[in-house]
Amino acid sequence: MKVTNHEELLVIALRAHLYIEREITSLFKKIYKDEKYNHLSFAQKVDLCKSLDIIESERIGPLTKLNKHRNALAHDLDFRILESDFDDLLSTLSKESKKHFEIELEGFYKVNSERERSLKDNYRILLAAIWSELKTENLFFFDHFNLRAKQILESEAKNIQELFEKYD
């Protein structure tokens, strides 16, 4: 996310949050005819995603934690993202997502071998990893939707079959 290439963690976090929210909005546009979701807060949008099962449940924790960081940055002049905040956000990732992040992080430092490891770069790469996984889900939304629809149909067919057997 080149747009998060900034010196201030505040700007990095806020811009990443906006890009992530854009992906969530893009998902909503695929399932809603109107834009009634526009008035919802980020947290409400994440809750709606969870309720509707339109993103993987393992993505909810990182989105919720990022939103807490964003809110703290936006409403508390003294808040600074610390190593512990980074660790907290990292701890919300699934095992697979954490592996993906570590690969991205090592690749970043390999390409930028002259740079010392820093919280700013680590946090930036972590946010980019969270965004890219959400972006991938967005791109493959209809595959997810079709799979979920198939699961529901199979479950309903089983329920109907059980009803027929019960009254036969």
Rank of each mutant, 00 (worst) to 15 (best):
T4Y: 06
E96G: 11
D85P: 01
Q44P: 07
F140W: 08
K158V: 00
D121H: 03
F164P: 02
E116I: 04
E104S: 09
R115M: 10
N146I: 13
Y109H: 09
K30V: 07
L126S: 02
E165T: 15
E83T: 12
R22V: 02
K99Y: 12
L82D: 10
N159L: 12
E96M: 01
I31Q: 04
S41D: 01
I60M: 08
E35K: 12
N5C: 04
E58S: 14
E114A: 11
L163M: 13
I54G: 05
Y32W: 07
R117C: 09
C49E: 03
K29H: 08
A43W: 04
I54E: 06
Y109D: 05
D168T: 06
F108L: 01
R124H: 05
H17N: 04
K99D: 15
A43L: 08
T25I: 10
L40G: 05
R117S: 12
V3G: 03
L66P: 00
S26M: 04
H100M: 08
S118G: 07
N146W: 08
E7F: 03
K45W: 03
E165Q: 15
K95M: 14
Y19I: 01
D85V: 01
L127W: 07
S51W: 02
I130Y: 05
E156N: 13
L48I: 09
L134S: 14
R80T: 10
K120R: 15
Q161I: 10
H39C: 09
H75P: 10
H100V: 13
A74K: 03
T4F: 03
R59A: 08
A129I: 07
D34A: 12
L40P: 05
R148C: 10
S41G: 10
D76Y: 03
I55D: 08
F142Y: 14
H39F: 08
E21Y: 00
L139W: 07
V3F: 02
D168R: 09
Y109A: 08
I81C: 08
N112W: 01
F28I: 01
I103C: 00
F145H: 13
S118I: 05
L89N: 06
K120M: 06
V111L: 15
F108M: 01
F86V: 01
K33I: 12
N71Q: 10
D78G: 07
N138A: 08
S132D: 15
Y19L: 07
L127E: 01
E56M: 04
